[in-house]
Amino acid sequence: MSRISKKAAFFATTAAAALTVTMTATPALAWPAGDFTATLAGDMVIDAGIAATCTDSTLSGTVATDGTLTVTSASVSGCGVTVTPVGLPWSGSLSGGVASFDGFQMSAIGCTFGGDITGSYSGGETFPVTAAFTEQTVDRTSGWLCPSSATVTASYTFTQP
């Protein structure tokens, strides 16, 4: 092998080794799998023509390493009327700065509203993170003389026990 070929082979091998070390040394971002609790940060406003402002809400469930959520328990209080989360479990995700709940449903005064809601979160892919849902429209799923839709605005801080 000529001296130029040996140098080229040496540099190519060194570059490949450096790339391999760099690629294997950078860990993939992943959520810490396990249980989570999400606590209302501020107020939740559910507006179906008349706004109900709720002062307390907690969600709990599990998160997978890819950010997939399963909400198995939800509570809401301090609304001035009884608001009941229904249709659990809800699914959802925290991925790439986007927070979502699929199958979200709340019932109040004989009306149930539900649907998929999407917001954003800040804080990276580790807890705690705060997810904000602003004026998300959910459709009436049951009830007589109820508006056809409502909007939901809420922020939740997600933590792990």
Rank of each mutant, 00 (worst) to 15 (best):
S5A: 15
F158I: 03
T112G: 13
A33P: 14
G124K: 05
G119H: 05
A64C: 02
R3L: 10
A16R: 02
A150T: 06
I46N: 02
A51I: 07
C146P: 09
L88F: 07
T26F: 13
A154L: 09
F113T: 04
A9E: 14
A9N: 12
V152S: 08
A150I: 04
S5M: 14
G61H: 03
G92S: 10
T39N: 04
T137R: 10
T157M: 06
G110W: 04
T65I: 03
D43T: 13
Y121W: 07
S100Q: 15
R140V: 01
T62N: 12
A38L: 08
G78M: 12
V71Q: 08
M44Q: 07
T134M: 09
T82I: 11
L145G: 03
D56R: 06
S107T: 05
G87E: 06
A51T: 09
S77A: 15
S91C: 05
S5E: 15
G123P: 13
S100Y: 09
S73D: 15
V83M: 14
A74H: 10
D35S: 15
K6Y: 11
G103I: 02
V63Q: 03
S73C: 07
C111I: 01
T134R: 05
S73A: 15
F36V: 00
V76C: 08
G123H: 05
A33I: 07
A15T: 07
G103M: 12
S77I: 01
T70V: 08
V45L: 04
L88V: 04
V86I: 14
M44F: 01
S91H: 02
S122V: 12
R140E: 12
A38N: 06
D35G: 10
T37D: 12
Q160C: 07
V45T: 14
G115A: 05
A28Q: 13
T22P: 00
T84D: 14
M23W: 03
V129F: 03
T126Q: 13
T20L: 14
F11I: 12
C146H: 04
D66G: 02
S107H: 04
S2T: 12
T20C: 13
P161G: 05
A48K: 03
A25R: 02
Q105A: 14
S142F: 00
A25K: 02
V98Y: 11
G67S: 03
S155R: 10
G96T: 04
K6F: 15
P85R: 10
A108G: 00
T39G: 00
T62M: 08
F113M: 08
A48S: 09
A9Q: 13
T126W: 00
A8N: 09
S60K: 05
G61A: 09
T65K: 11
L59A: 02
L40C: 03
I117F: 10
F101V: 12
L19V: 14
S122E: 12
G61D: 06
A15V: 13
T118A: 10
G143H: 10
T84Y: 01
G123R: 04
A132S: 15
I117D: 12
T141E: 14
W90Q: 06
L40A: 03
P128M: 06
A12N: 02
T62D: 13
S93F: 09
Q105D: 01
L94N: 00
G124H: 03
A25W: 01
R140T: 03
S120I: 08
A74G: 11
T153A: 08
